[in-house]
Amino acid sequence: MNERYSRQVLFPGIGQEGQAKISSKHVLIIGAGALGSGSSEILARAGVGKLTIIDRDYVEASNLQRQQLYTEEDVAEKLPKAAAAEKRLRAINSAVEIRAIIGDATPELLEELVGDVDLMLDATDNFETRMMMNDISQKYKIPWIYGACVGSFGMSFSIIPGKTPCLNCLLRTIPLQGMTCDTGGIISPAVQMVIAHQTAEALKMLVEDWDAVRNSLVSFDLWRNQYTSMKMSKAKFAGCLSCGEERTYPYLDHENMTKTTVLCGRDTVQIRPSSAGEISLDQLAGQLSALGYTVKGNPYLISVEIGAERMVIFQDGRALIHGTKDLTHAKSLYQRILG
């Protein structure tokens, strides 16, 4: 084994055999924000065989306070997070096969991707996507690791199909959210603490040390010096629609998915077109400039100022409308530009 991994091969929980397993595995990370940038860096440094990273967002100034792969230059270039993450991860470890996907984690995309995936890491910022991951996990028997944080508070839980309860057992329904995330802010140590738990669990699963996997949900508050561990076996719910006998995988059904979303913690609305398809960004940018709009762009997106709002349009027709939380207003702006 390589000198590069000598310190983790020395760790008895990994060893030569564990390192060989790590280097043969494929991990899917959904989200490349605070949690995703941190955990993808740890797994790339640890020498995982293949990393697939999905993110729909691009790098903004307010990300730099806690999203570790990104620099001021990435902000200036408005790079999509998945592309910026890929660039940095390659510089860190050129031996890892990295696939960056700029776009939304839809059921179709996940079902197409997970064929050879050994483990999924949660790095998303909303429960809709987590419930979808949870259904994919149960349907294809792929473990995943829930992680989330707000303020100085965070939590993590390891979900193994057929063994542990699933996220739908715990929550029963998608919690109404928004308030904590909008008003709580976030400090970077809380992000790192969640990542530490998620990636330790990931390494255990990658080396197949299933007995070491944590069977409790950890939660902590670093500012208030709280830490608690809640045993979860009793949370298993026989009637669960995701992992029970009568399972229907409800979150893989498009009927249960919104098309317009206020993004958590931000004055931004996302619009997803109901039908998939590519748009020509060059052509659109030309038209808008001709109409007198201020347009900036790169190969992945264009950004247009529209009065007090700013709209960012991606190749797949998805758009982010910054400066509003009003879904109807956002939709009308979108339709004004894209019809």
């Binding site: 605070a34 910022d125 909303n126 429960f127 987590r130 989330a148 944080c149 707000v150 508070f153 965070g154 939590m155 309860p165 715990l170 929550l171 919690p175 959210q177 904590t180 995330c181 709580g184 976030i186 949900l217 939660s219 608690t228 809640m230 045993k231 979860m232 076996s233 009793k234 949370a235 958590c264 913690g265």
Partner: peptide, 22 residues
């Protein structure tokens, strides 16, 4: 973990933990 219909006994320590999404 305790469900909503579980009965609390004297001396039990209870913790309320909100799931977060960030």
């Amino acid at each position: 973990f305790a469900s909503n219909d579980e009965v609390i006994r004297d001396g039990d320590e209870i913790a309320f933990i909100p799931p977060v999404s960030g």
